[in-house]
Design a binder for these strands. Structure first.
Length: 806
RNA sequence: GCCGAAGUGGCGGAAUGGCAGACGCACGGGACUCAAAAUCCCGCGAGGGCAACUUCAUGUGGGUUCGACUCCCACCUUCGGCACCA
């Protein structure tokens, strides 16, 4: 046979798949069970990169594997096209974002076709398509109507460089997730989605989904559930008049007798409530202004150096021991968590300890430990179960017991109750940008905030050529006057549209549902079709934004389930995060990295099938793997040998020489496809080929089965070779079955250990009895025989190992 | 600081508690060739021995077990996530 001309043959098969569409998913297939494989849709920004190669191929292999196993597979693709790349292109070069997206999508999808990916191209869309974002807006309307979306003036993360509000998620560490610049705290109008309400449901989702433990932990930490107590303190002025109450949240109720002060967040509105009683209000105001100007980043960068301001003229009383405690403001207390107020126990919390030292506040020990240098914190005192001191009737009690007893006392006194708190905040959902979904909301002087009617969706983005925010930082849409000015849908009087747009995350928080029924004009997807396709069985993609993306997805699907729009609570059954391809510096390979290699370059030089195999022979799917061309010749040589198999055909049925290897191959390869362990699949194929070449022949049936097994990974070469030999399309064939009985060898080599160390390997019958085995060892290895005489104990695991203890 | 994952030849990496280093690369030797490339065969963790063999080896130190890369405890290192969350 001729040499394998990868360029011509790959082109031939890709053209055929394009024309014949063999990878279309069939709604309501009468016989085949469904299987939904999802690859996280790409951001429409640039060209194909190594991350795509690493991420798409396993999903494609799984989809192809499942099809050959008789499943009706849904394996769709689309474009995440709203967001920064198009917006940046618009502001920098003036190109229309819509044009940018059209070109970008064309490029990336044609490159995906070059990878031989078996997507169902009839279901493709971009999130910026009107008939897609119509339904994103529809979902927002439902959230709004059900009270899950609200607009509020709030202190938010604002990126001066990007001129937009960011969610907490987008501004971690005080840095803008997009541009990397410092984030400021600013007061603005913000749309929030009530995600916090869903904390418990999201935790259940996290428990149910099959996902790597580190990713699950990251999500649990993000939600940040913590169980403690909320306790009420009476507040007094300097005339000892009771003027109100404040509540604190604590997870360390056992330290309550050690309170020497109470701290409010600077933003806490109680400061305004008690304003008239505060003697140094000017000073207090100055402190509040100072902290408001500091970015989150500044606040964190000098964690050690506590700042604060006393509220002169106010004090609180500890309800358990009636001790007075002064009140402070300090920015180490966050307004957004708990009640925005804490009881400070310097002996049991290092932050309180540092603050007390700086402001000369007394430190009262509540446990029998040394606090001369630093506080004894919860982790330590619970581990050591220290005894209580200075805690009234609880003195001498071990702290773990006191924790329960004090909690009971607080409850029975009626001054507090058990309470659960979450770190996760409501999702800030608006951006001052052009290239996003417009909110289907208008503001009417008469009717207030009014939702558009569903029949008026989509609310289409207007055309403009000015993509910059105005001087006040309002969205570019605010400049499009004839779009902004409209009629109130309720009363018909003049009104103005919401000019902010939704964040990039909006479309990606529900897009998998749309693939099920992408052309539906009456619903986000037909309910029966949603029922048929159910949850995504396997969802692959990068790990970069996985925590947020998965939590947002859980949130929306939970909500849609509650309003009866979808039949399932879980968006995904199993989520796998692909590792990175690293450059030779050990850094993520990207366009900006010096040593970046494009997959197109590899394809051009070696062919797609080689590229597909090589990337995954380098390492596991979830591992980060350094890229190298080293070893690619091994893959090329392997595929050459696969191609040469058709010259070695001798005989028809499976031969007795190969029956064991073939059955073992089927078993191993099948298991590894299920688990996306592509690297060990490839090595199994290599071992099998070695055996075939040693024997000098392969039968026709063996070749047929081999090509099917390899097809999901190397679809082009196997399709061509199969057609050459069998005159049919390999896709019409089905997955080979193995039989257990062929996997059992009669003769096995059994390791013999002496005192747990390997001594010999003996070839015996698989089912040999212990006595027969021992006499066989005596016969074959007399040097061990003498030892056998002093044998103490024999551990014999039939078929596995024998260990002789002397 | 907290949470999580991982540490195995020159390299990428394999190993349901049961023959550590599969498979591939690189390297060494040989065959073919005028020669080279390609291809094929053999070898390839380290130390010792002419050899059959033998000792030591999965980050470090302990432990459980007949038997540990695998399980437990402590520590070191790397990577990832979170970070004043009371």
């Amino acid at each position: 046979m001729k040499n394998y001309d990868f360029k011509a043959i790959e082109k031939k098969w890709q053209a055929r798949w394009e024309k014949e569409k063999p990878f279309r998913a069939v709604d309501f297939h009468p016989t085949k069970p469904k299987f939904y494989v999802l690859y996280e849709f790409p951001n429409i920004s640039g060209s194909l990169h190594m991350g795509h190669l690493k991420g798409t191929i396993p999903a494609d292999a799984l989809a192809r594997y499942k099809r050959l196993n008789g499943f009706n597979v849904l394996f769709p693709i689309g474009g995440d096209s709203f967001g920064l790349p198009a917006e940046n292109a618009a502001t920098k070069t003036g190109i229309n974002p819509r044009t940018f997206v059209e070109n970008g999508a064309k490029t990336i999808f044609s490159q995906f076709k070059q990878l031989g990916l078996s997507f169902d191209w009839d279901r493709t869309f971009n999130t910026s398509d009107e008939n897609f974002y119509k339904w994103t807006q529809w979902i927002f309307l439902q959230l709004f109507k059900n009270g899950k979306a609200y607009k509020k003036k709030g202190v938010v993360n604002f990126c001066p460089n990007c001129q937009t509000v960011l969610s907490n998620e987008d501004s971690q560490g005080g840095k803008c997730d997009r541009c990397g610049g410092d984030v400021r705290q600013e007061e603005r109008w913000v749309w929030f989605l009530k995600m916090k309400e869903y904390s418990e449901k999201l935790l259940e989702n996290v428990d149910r989904i099959q996902m790597a433990e580190n990713l699950k932990e990251a999500q649990r930490n993000w939600i940040g559930k913590s169980e403690g107590m909320q306790v009420r303190f009476d507040v007094f002025n300097d005339k000892d008049e009771k003027i109100g109450k404040l509540e604190i949240f604590t997870t360390c109720i056992e330290t309550i007798y050690g309170i020497t002060f109470v701290v409010l967040a600077p933003e806490n509105e109680l400061v305004d409530t008690f304003k008239v009683h505060i003697k140094n209000f000017a000073e207090v105001e100055a402190y509040r202004e100072k902290t408001a100007l500091r970015s989150e980043f500044d606040r964190m960068s000098d964690q050690k150096e506590k700042t604060g301001c006393k509220l002169d003229g106010l004090y609180v009383v500890n309800p358990l021991n009636n001790q007075k405690a002064p009140l402070y403001l300090a920015d180490f207390v966050l307004a957004t968590y708990g009640t925005g107020a804490v009881m400070a126990v310097p002996s049991g919390d290092q932050r309180d300890y540092d603050f007390a030292k700086k402001f000369n506040i007394p430190i009262i020990p509540v446990m029998d430990g040394d606090i001369s240098e630093h506080a004894i914190e919860k982790k330590e005192y619970l581990a050591k179960n220290l005894k209580m001191v200075n805690s009234a009737e609880f003195d001498g009690m071990p702290v773990r017991e006191a924790k329960q007893k004090i909690a009971q006392k607080v409850v029975s006194m009626g001054v507090g109750e058990r309470k659960v708190n979450y770190k996760m905040q409501d999702w800030s959902f608006n951006r001052q940008r052009f290239w996003g979904e417009p909110f289907p909301i208008v503001f009417c002087d008469h009717c207030g905030t009014v939702a558009l009617d569903e029949k008026d969706l989509p609310l289409v983005l207007p055309e403009t050529n000015d993509y910059m925010p105005n001087a006040k930082g309002d969205s570019p849409l605010s400049k499009v006057e004839d779009w902004v000015n409209c009629k109130c849908p309720k009363c018909g009087r003049p009104a103005r549209r919401e000019t902010d747009t939704m964040p990039n995350w909006a479309g990606s928080s529900w897009y998998w549902l749309r693939y099920v029924d992408p052309h539906n004009d009456n619903a986000l997807a037909d309910f029966e079709k949603l029922k048929y396709w159910g949850s995504v069985d396997v969802y692959t993609g990068g790990t970069e934004h996985i925590t947020r993306h998965v939590l947002y997805s859980f949130f929306w699907q939970n909500f849609l389930y509650e309003i009866g729009a979808v039949p399932t609570k879980d968006p995904f059954i199993r989520k796998m995060g692909s590792g990175l391809i690293l450059d030779d510096q050990g850094k993520k390979m990207s366009k900006s990295s010096k040593n970046g290699v494009s997959p197109l370059e590899v394809i051009d030089k070696y062919g797609v099938d080689v590229a597909r195999l090589h990337v995954h022979f380098l390492g596991g799917y979830e591992d980060n793997t350094p890229w190298t061309f080293d070893g690619i010749t091994g893959i090329t040589a392997f595929l050459d040998k696969v191609w040469a198999l058709s010259d070695m055909i001798k005989g028809e049925a499976v031969s007795k020489e190969h029956i064991y290897e073939l059955n073992r191959l089927i078993k191993k390869v099948s298991e590894d496809y299920e688990n996306l362990k592509l690297n060990t699949i490839i090595s199994s194929f290599m071992i099998f080929i070695k055996k075939i070449r040693d024997d000098g022949f392969i039968t026709k049936e063996e070749l047929r089965q081999f090509l099917i097994l390899l097809n999901p990974l190397a679809p082009h070469i196997t399709s061509e070779e199969y057609e050459n030999v069998f005159g049919k399309n390999i896709l019409e064939d089905s997955w080979p079955k193995y039989e257990e009985k062929y996997l059992v060898e009669d003769e096995i080599s059994l390791p013999i250990q002496i005192n747990g160390k390997l001594a010999k390997v003996i070839t015996v019958s698989r089912t040999i009895t212990q006595d027969a085995l021992l006499s066989e060892i005596e016969r074959q290895y007399p040097e061990i025989y003498s030892k056998v005489k002093q044998v103490k104990k024999v551990i014999y695991v039939p078929g596995r190992i024998v260990n002789i203890i002397l």
